[in-house]
């Protein structure tokens, strides 16, 4: 068994077997994994907001879908992953509170998911699995050896995507 690498909000890290990578208690944030199944090199980023260009204080690039995914993409390639083999899996973006208003501030989970999909499409990285939206938090674990992305929610058995 390898180590479990843990990342928090607005953080990213690379991972290779036998290690695995996790982020705990995703709410409206999104966990994005980019990996190359041939070299088994992968990385995960935990983004909080959709768009860095809308925010003045945007030096923390891993906080945003656009810059966070771009940096992750560059980092896995630099680590030796093959660009044309890259695939991705994403989870998170829940709406934690059942707001009745459609205030944009409160729909951030959906907007994060849309922004992540858009950025991955732009980079031409196929999304093999997506588990976003709904209203419950998720802990996610990614195992680069097998490509399994394990999602755990409260009161439900863990499932693989």
């Amino acid at each position: 068994m390898g180590n479990m690498i843990k990342i928090g909000m607005a953080e990213a890290a690379l991972c290779t077997p036998p290690d695995a990578i996790t982020t705990l208690g995703l709410g409206s944030c999104i966990g994005i994994v980019i990996y190359d199944p041939t070299t088994k090199i992968c990385g995960m980023v935990h983004i909080m907001l959709p768009d860095s260009t809308k925010i003045r204080n945007n030096e923390t690039r891993a906080k945003f879908a656009d810059t966070g995914i771009q940096d992750l993409y560059n980092a896995v390639i630099k680590a030796g992953a093959k660009k044309e083999k890259l695939v991705s899996k994403i989870a998170g973006g829940a709406q934690m509170f059942a707001f009745k208003s459609d205030n944009d501030m409160l729909r951030v989970g959906d907007r994060n998911a849309e922004a992540a999909v858009k950025k991955l499409n732009e980079l031409k990285v196929p999304i093999l699995a997506q588990d976003t939206g709904k209203n419950s938090g998720r802990t996610v674990e990614f195992y680069p050896e097998t490509g399994v992305f394990l999602v755990k929610s409260v009161g439900k058995p863990p499932y693989e995507i």
């Binding site: 909000m9 705990l24 208690g25 995703l26 709410g27 409206s28 944030c29 909080m48 829940a94 934690m96 509170f97 059942a98 707001f99 209203n135 419950s136 938090g137 998720r138 802990t139 409260v154």
Partner: peptide
């Protein structure tokens, strides 16, 4: 508004 879930998920808001 009320939610019961993992602290990380609740505090993400």
């Amino acid at each position: 508004y009320i939610a019961i879930d993992m602290a990380g998920a609740i505090l993400s808001v």
